[in-house]
Write a protein that binds this DNA or RNA. Structure first.
Lengths: 275, 275
DNA sequence: GCAATAGTGTCTTTAAGACACTATCCC
DNA sequence: GGGATAGTGTCTTAAAGACACTATTGC
């Protein structure tokens, strides 16, 4: 992998010299993960969007909250995506830290992961030059995070109750980008189904949209709209076992359809502004 | 920037050790640029989308075409975006190679640059582990590229005449992602105005959409639609000096409006498929 | 019965697209 | 005049959203 043939020309030699990392100041490569889920608020305010954070134990930013993340293990030929899954698994305690090869994906099997962007501004980490590849992860309600790996304490926090200034490094910016990406992707993809279980009601799906967009939707119109988009949901011909806690009809259960892109899209309401 | 205080605890020591890049196999960080423009085809087939490529002079992939790109200059505290602009400027010959500090942006002032994604799969470069941050650049018709820097020969090629198998490394995949991003962003942003000059006709704007999407649009409906989207274009109260080469009315000139996001969007025609 | 939740009917407004038409220019 | 290019009118269909309504359940 790292061996090369004998340079056979001046330009070849120049290329190899240019490719020798020792000729450059070193750059460290890390991954950070913006992991989002929908869960009941601890303060009893209904369901809302939560992000996974850890509490940093060491300088710099000791005591601050941060996104889970860490180094890409180049020595083990780890791919970037693999590193993101590993960090998430380690720091949520959903897999043994540094254990065997199998299993880190068990409880994360319904996880949707995508690359968000790469952040490499000099000085974003005061110790050295770090280029961080940020990932966005969506999952149905996961068990409470358990500290593991480097994380002093991992916790799901409601995104609207999180003070951006409390986040280490440029993680507030990364989180903001992740949220905007999630909001946009709800419109034109079937991403919302990644936040619910394998069977779900239209109301549960609506709660996902309301939590991510942060505004109430008209239940009736939403219901009809979801059913009218081809391939978004499929009927399972079953219903919930009971109606609402304080009365109400039983809801029909659906599963995710095959469509990944929505036509027509489910657009966010009322955006007069053109930034 | 790289100095740190004395470790004051075990966890601090562990952090610093984890942050020491010498404890890891090194990873090189590069940028690659998918630079797109609309220009007249050399084979006389009208205007179409072109991508900037260089011809590689050295192994591996000697003789293949590749996207312009190169190392991030960490020793100079170069930001990722800066590296992308520098590589583009060097390899298009639009700025002196390695010259003074001023100027590389002169001819690229109307350039629109955004991050596309990061590609770091082990083995994508046979020599060593390389993580490449890909950028997408849009510009109005630029002068012919002149070889400079490491590029043996730089040229604008029509994207539909480029054999993906001819591209080095995983650049075919990066290009495909870039094209899909460009196609999607035309729909809901004012990106198309980045491909034309400061003043343009509705027909020029339509040619951008047709070139990027690769399908003809209805001129009349497009015209009305563009004018109906708030903030997309502004009337300059001027017209072209002459009509068409073989006769025809003079066209009104517009400039880009303030909107960055389009409401409603300009959707691509006829996509029955849901992948 | 009553309150709560699920789901439907219907109407208005807006936008997309097909198609025919008018306007202006170069030769 | 004639062909080419720019721009408009009008009609049909689809979709978004407001709002009222029916259906079914737990208590």
């Amino acid at each position: 992998m790292t061996t090369v043939g004998q340079p056979d020309s001046d330009s070849e030699r120049a290329w190899l010299a240019a490719y020798d990392p020792r000729a450059f100041a070193p750059i460290a490569v890390t991954v950070d993960v913006v992991a989002l889920t929908i869960r009941q608020r601890a303060d009893g305010g209904g369901k809302s969007l939560h992000v996974l954070t850890i509490r940093r134990g060491a300088m710099p930013f000791a005591g601050c909250r941060a996104l889970p993340g860490g180094f890409v293990r180049a020595a083990e030929d780890e791919d970037l995506d693999e590193a993101a899954v590993r960090e998430l698994a380690e720091e949520t305690g959903l897999a043994a830290h540094g254990g065997g090869e199998a299993g880190p994906l068990e409880a994360l099997s319904r996880l949707h992961l995508e690359q968000l962007g790469t952040y490499g501004t000099p000085g974003r980490d005061p110790r050295m030059r770090v280029v961080s590849v940020a990932y966005l992860a969506f999952a149905p309600d996961l068990p409470d995070a358990t500290a593991g790996g480097d994380a002093a304490a991992a916790a799901w926090l409601p995104v609207d109750a999180l003070d951006p200034a409390e986040l280490a490094f440029d993680h507030a910016r990364i989180l903001a980008h992740g949220l905007e990406r999630a909001r946009a992707k709800l419109e034109y993809t079937s991403l919302a189904t990644a936040f619910v279980g394998p069977k779900f009601t239209i109301t549960e799906l609506r709660e996902v949209y309301e939590a991510v967009w942060g505004e109430p939707l008209h239940a009736g119109n939403f219901h009809r709209k979801v059913l009218s988009v081809p391939g978004l949901v499929e009927d399972t011909d079953t219903t919930t076992a009971r109606g609402g806690a304080r009365g109400g009809r039983r809801a029909r259960l659906y599963r995710a359809g095959g469509a990944r892109l929505l036509h027509p899209a489910l657009l966010r309401p009322s955006r007069e502004d053109n930034q």
